[in-house]
């Protein structure tokens, strides 16, 4: 019989963790041991998650690519599928297809500085990259994370930053500061105020709302990063993950299989402006 790429692999929710208001991280274990063992992904790739009866939606994998026992996704309650997912409990069934797409340029970035910029839940697809870099710390030069969220409450992976700070620079900012917030305030671009790349050997990777990526890209260009070293992950309505359904097509490219990670020089050649 032909294997059917539309048929999800059965999986169970192992644990659910609150990250921020309406935002949770779900740890998921694929039931079949063989499939689980062969489930390899590259940071920046995504899966299609089935909540039976609600449908399927794409989510970035947020766990470390080194972990095979299970994987995680961080989800904000937004649409139909996420509403269904938030009603599930530990031990409930879900379905998994993937991983799909092209992730961050791990190889190209080696021996370079890496500037990671994230907005809100946009940190999710960058977390496995940060964890990969930390595991291979010697292969990368200066690594810095600029992360912006709406309010301190909206910051995800709050308990990770202290660990990450042992290996990389982390700077946080919030749009709306509260009394007990002593850090930066303003959009993520405020973190560029005193930032100058120390060399030409620098890559930037980013994920966030389209408006953030627009201004961050402008900022990066103004400090001299060439378009081919500015990478971002695009969000689109990806139904099939294989370039069939046509929904994610942007300027002639399928975000699901050619992306979701693109560099700015690729994107500049799109007829449609995606960022």
């Amino acid at each position: 019989m032909v294997s059917n790429p539309y048929l999800p692999k059965l999986a169970k929710i192992e644990s659910i963790k609150d990250e921020a208001p309406e935002t949770k991280t779900f740890k998921i274990k694929i039931l079949d041991e063989k499939i689980r063992d062969s489930f390899n992904f590259s940071p920046g790739q995504f899966i299609e998650l089935t909540v039976f009866g609600y449908g399927e939606a794409p989510f970035s994998i947020t766990s470390s690519p080194m972990v095979h026992e299970n994987f995680s996704i961080t989800v904000r309650k937004m649409g139909n599928v996420t509403k269904g997912l938030f009603r599930l409990r530990e031990g409930d069934f879900v379905g998994v297809r993937g991983p799909f797409g092209r992730g961050w340029p791990l190889e190209k970035m080696k021996e370079n500085d890496v500037l990671v910029i994230a907005g809100g839940i946009g940190l999710a697809p960058l977390k496995p990259l940060i964890e990969y870099i930390i595991l291979h710390r010697k292969m990368y030069n200066n690594v810095k994370l600029f992360y912006g969220a709406k309010t301190p409450k909206d910051i995800i992976y709050k308990d990770m930053f202290d660990e990450w700070r042992k290996y990389i620079d982390v700077e946080l900012t919030v749009d709306f500061a509260e009394k007990d917030w002593s850090g930066h305030s303003g959009p993520v671009t405020v973190l560029f105020k005193n930032f100058q790349p120390s060399s030409d050997n620098i890559y930037s990777v980013q994920c966030g709302p389209p408006i953030m990526m627009h201004f961050v890209t402008r900022q990066l260009s103004s400090i001299g990063l060439p378009p081919e070293k500015i990478y971002f992950s695009l969000e689109r309505n990806m139904k099939c993950g294989m370039g069939f359904c046509g929904k994610c097509m942007t300027g002639g490219r399928y975000v699901c299989k050619e992306g979701p990670v693109f560099n700015y020089s690729e994107v500049k050649n799109f007829l449609e402006t995606p960022v």
């Binding site: 539309y6 609600y54 399927e56 139904k239 099939c240 359904c245 046509g246 929904k247």
Partner: peptide, 10 residues
Amino acid sequence: CRCFTITDEP
């Protein structure tokens, strides 16, 4: 033309 969407019908 072959674009499609995928949904669940409980």
